[in-house]
């Protein structure tokens, strides 16, 4: 198992109630597994249709396999102006 730290932005920060969270997954898990794990723990995340995941400051496809020291960020759309 590997622990991943996820930085949170916008509404995801409010849903999870913190500016970052930790997710423990089996080794060689992908971005999709990470998102699904978070959605199970925080069902409100499932309401967000478009949720951007960045890994090491780069847009990540759901199939990207994570490695231990990756910097992961969850970025929702923001509407205010």
């Amino acid at each position: 198992m590997t622990k991943y730290k996820v930085s949170l932005f916008g509404i995801t920060k409010d849903i999870i109630g913190s500016s970052s969270t930790e997710v423990e997954l089996t080794d060689q898990s992908d971005v999709n597994a990470l998102v699904e794990n978070l959605k199970t723990k925080f069902p409100q995340l499932s309401e967000i249709k478009s949720l951007l995941v960045a890994v090491n400051s780069e847009y990540a496809d759901l199939g990207l396999v994570l490695s231990e020291k990756d910097e992961i960020a969850l970025i929702p759309p923001v509407s205010g102006g």
Binding site: G10, I11, E47, I48, K49, S50, L52, Y59, P76, P77, V78, S79, G80, G81
Partner: peptide, 15 residues
């Protein structure tokens, strides 16, 4: 390319 689908105003709150 970042957010393909338009969210509803209910899922993301406004100022």
């Amino acid at each position: 390319c970042l957010f393909p689908e338009q969210p509803s105003e209910a899922e993301i709150p406004n100022c």
